[in-house]
Simulated assay, not measured.
Amino acid sequence: MRLPKAPLAAVLLLGCVAGCTSSGSGSHKVSVFAVKPGQCFTAPGTVKVQLSSLAEVDCSKPHTQEAYAVVPYTATGGAASTGTPAARALTSSYPGEDVLTTFAQGACAQRYRGYVGVDYLDSTLFFTYLLPSARSWEQQADRNVLCFVTTTGTMLTKSVKGSKQ
């Protein structure tokens, strides 16, 4: 998965990196291809543009991000990237980072209220996302955008689901 080039990308860079290792904080590696809503993650010590795993912790432990949506990329024309052969054909070629970024910003913003319980514009938290890289798109048929609630200040110590923060 590739990190987006967007203002909120810097926030995610603080929280994720390939090769996160398990530490005394109770974290363990989770493949970016296995992330599910409700999982919480901690910040690593170093930053990379592409990553393959995240350091997951229990949401009751200090963390900086919580996954809240896994959204299949939808090509122009509205066909989901998964499902019928016709739908998959619309997304067989990597659409590029700009197209994926625009899609991710809209898709993650739309799903924010349903998870946190308050509109993004009224929230004290932020969101960011991970995009499929050209490599994961071609080699692993990766079409999912991962959406994360994140903080730039105080660490989170519980799930933000339904918190209305």
Rank of each mutant, 00 (worst) to 15 (best):
R2D: 12
L3H: 10
L3I: 11
L3G: 10
P4N: 13
A6Y: 11
P7K: 07
L8S: 14
A10Q: 08
V11H: 01
L14C: 03
G15C: 11
C16R: 03
V17D: 03
A18L: 02
C20F: 07
T21C: 00
S23G: 09
G24V: 02
G24W: 04
S25T: 10
S25A: 14
S25G: 07
G26N: 10
G26D: 13
H28K: 15
H28L: 06
K29H: 08
S31V: 11
V32E: 00
V32N: 01
V32Y: 01
V35C: 03
V35E: 06
K36M: 09
G38L: 07
F41P: 02
T42D: 06
T42F: 04
T42A: 14
T42I: 15
P44A: 06
G45I: 02
G45T: 02
T46E: 13
T46A: 12
V47S: 03
V47F: 02
V47Y: 01
K48N: 09
V49T: 14
V49Q: 14
S52A: 10
S52G: 14
L54I: 04
A55V: 04
E56H: 06
E56F: 04
C59H: 09
K61P: 05
K61S: 15
P62I: 08
P62E: 09
P62N: 13
H63F: 12
T64S: 06
T64G: 05
Q65W: 11
Q65I: 08
E66C: 06
E66F: 11
A67D: 02
A67L: 05
Y68I: 08
Y68H: 05
Y68M: 05
V70I: 15
V70G: 10
P72M: 09
T74N: 11
A75W: 08
T76Q: 13
G77I: 13
G78Q: 12
A79F: 11
T84S: 15
P85R: 08
P85W: 11
A86R: 10
T91F: 06
T91I: 12
S92I: 10
S92R: 15
S93G: 12
P95F: 10
P95Q: 08
P95I: 06
G96F: 10
G96Y: 14
D98P: 00
L100N: 02
L100K: 03
T101H: 08
T101F: 01
T102S: 08
F103R: 03
A104S: 09
G106D: 14
A107T: 06
C108L: 10
A109H: 10
A109P: 00
R111V: 01
R111P: 01
G114H: 01
Y115F: 15
V116K: 00
G117T: 08
D119S: 13
Y120D: 12
D122C: 03
T124C: 04
T124Q: 12
F126I: 05
F126E: 06
F126R: 07
Y129I: 09
Y129V: 02
L130P: 00
L131P: 04
P132S: 10
A134P: 05
A134F: 03
W137A: 14
Q139R: 14
Q139F: 03
Q139N: 13
Q140T: 14
D142G: 05
R143S: 02
N144F: 11
C147G: 03
V149A: 01
T150I: 04
T152P: 00
G153C: 04
L156F: 09
L156V: 06
K158A: 14
K158R: 14
K161A: 15
G162Q: 13
S163M: 08
K164R: 12
